[in-house]
């Protein structure tokens, strides 16, 4: 593998140092271990192949790639849901996708999905700044990941927190379920 000319031990250290954090933020966004694991693999593969140490510090770079992949994944999933709804269920020998886990975790999962829907209602930048800051990135790292000036992070974060709380309290997460259903009917894909 040519890659970025990595020494194996060096890359393993980097992987192990950042995997848990990257996995966690991905899981927060996509809510499935499988997807979060796959996305984490892609984040590190991208890092292995294209990250330029002279251009960017690694941690914010990894989080930026994770944000992009996870937000795209969530958008694609909404599109897939729309497409599957349109196709309808066809009786065939082909298996259906797995049912959601029908255990007592449903209530918690609904709460989680409400939080994710609230994040969906925010402009992506606002959702990302919340996720990055609450993943433990410093203002400087958040600034690097989102390519904004460090001095603006505090203001952007304050705005994002206010918008998030307002949206969540007003029930955006819950209400948007109906909105999403309506949107599906109209054939819009959302962002």
């Amino acid at each position: 593998m040519t890659g970025g000319g990595w020494n194996d031990a060096e890359f393993e250290r980097l992987f192990r140092a950042h995997f848990a954090g990257i996995y966690r933020v991905l899981f927060r966004i996509v809510g499935s271990r499988q997807e979060a694991e796959d996305l984490a693999q892609e984040v590190f593969l991208r890092c292995y192949q294209v990250w330029d140490p002279s251009a960017h510090p690694v941690r914010p770079w990894l989080y930026r790639v994770a944000m992009n992949l996870a937000f795209n994944e969530r958008r694609d999933r909404r599109r897939r849901d729309v497409r599957n709804d349109k196709a309808g269920r066809i009786e065939t020998a082909i298996g259906d996708p797995p049912d959601p886990d029908p255990s007592e975790a449903i209530a918690r999962e609904e709460e989680r999905e409400a939080v994710r829907r609230t994040l969906d209602t925010l402009p992506p930048r606002q959702a990302q700044i919340l996720l990055l800051r609450h993943a433990g990135l410093s203002y400087r790292e958040v600034a690097e990941a989102l390519e904004v000036v460090p001095a603006s992070v505090g203001t952007l974060l304050a705005r994002a927190e206010a918008a998030f709380e307002e949206a969540h309290r007003s029930g955006a997460g819950r209400a948007s379920r109906a909105a999403a259903a309506a949107q599906k009917k109209e054939g819009h894909h959302g962002v």
């Binding site: 966690r24 927060r28 918690r108 939080v115 994710r116 609450h134 998030f164 709380e165 969540h168």
Partner: peptide
């Protein structure tokens, strides 16, 4: 409050 809500998204089991 934001931190708590986001923490609810963390992997649990």
């Amino acid at each position: 409050a934001v931190a708590d809500r986001l923490a609810a998204l963390d992997p649990g089991s």
